[in-house]
Write a protein that binds this DNA or RNA. Structure first.
Ligand SMILES: [Mn+2]
Ligand SMILES: [Mn+2]
Ligand SMILES: [Zn+2]
Ligand SMILES: [Zn+2]
Lengths: 155, 155
DNA sequence: AACGACATGACAATCATTCTCACGAGCAGT
DNA sequence: ACTGCTCGTGAGAATGATTGTCATGTCGTT
């Protein structure tokens, strides 16, 4: 991914909110609707498949483009799996937050943690770093999957 | 990446330490040596290029395989960039820890943060999650890059 | 020195994601 | 509603990092 910065005249203030989304289209609505019926993280292809199954006609490239655009305007949460696949999920919380994800079934809990934010920020500042940012995700087994695993272990 | 779990007979205890690394080879030594001369995160291809430049003869696939194996035995730190490329780095610290990475030049500082570990763990347990794990990386501009940016802004 | 399991390397194959570009559809202005 | 200017879409090709294949080389042991 090349990182350009357009030289020359700056646009007054693009208000990064709507990049690549000036218009409302049937496809985008359908994508948001599909997303709203799921509560775990899904890949672009999974979402596309689901839509086709539901009878929607949408191109795969369109799904990719929209998910990307929606994520950039903070309307979706993004998670890059261990396998490198990017997964999206409709975000309940508004503003900066983190996730607790079941590595087995994908069940997700959103959480805020001012204490964590403060601690990370302090550590980074102590080292002279500025313009901070971070990624933080917690994984584990949810109660359901833990129970299932215990049962399997007991034969 | 498909996730199998070999059914059937379990090996006594593979001691996950040396997966795919029973032997010592010239290639692996060279890779470790190349790694030891860098202190920022590099992709498999970058490392391969550097080695070729230094006169080493090593196949790209071999570089990929070894980096992967070394990472699995915790001898390397792994970071998946925004562009999806996996980067590796020789790890100074021993044991679990995190990184503060300059998003411009890659300069990296390792840090421990028991307070963070404890807080994440507490939050997850409150939600009933077990067998915990997490990813946490902090990004920012190091003092050098911050200075460079300030200068550029002032023309 | 001989052997058998592993590791390597050249190259093909995968596969998620991005690019291309002709065509269709929002939407502002009339 | 009509026109026009864009932007968004879709089908397929292209990209590019990573992985698979398999014949051949090498390590560590006997
Ligand atoms: Mn945060
Ligand atoms: Mn940690
Ligand atoms: Zn679960
Ligand atoms: Zn820097």
């Amino acid at each position: 991914m090349t990182r350009h910065g357009s030289p020359g005249m700056e646009v007054p203030t693009p208000m990064r909110e709507n990049r690549g989304m000036q218009r409302n289209t049937r496809q985008r609505s359908a994508i948001l609707e599909a997303l709203s019926r799921q509560d775990d993280f899904r890949s672009a292809q999974q979402i596309h498949e689901q839509m086709r199954a539901d009878g929607e006609t949408v191109g795969l490239a369109t799904v990719y483009r929209n998910l990307q655009a929606l994520a950039q305007s903070d309307r979706l949460d993004v998670l890059v799996g261990d396998d490198g696949e990017t997964r999206y999920r409709q975000c309940e919380a508004t503003g900066h937050h983190h996730h607790l994800v079941c590595r087995e079934c994908g069940r997700t809990v959103e959480f805020l943690a001012p204490e964590l934010e403060a601690a990370m920020s302090r550590i980074a500042r102590e080292q002279g770093y500025t313009d901070l940012d971070h990624t933080l995700e917690v994984f584990g087994l949810c109660t359901g999957c833990e129970a299932a695993r215990a049962e399997a272990t007991a034969r």
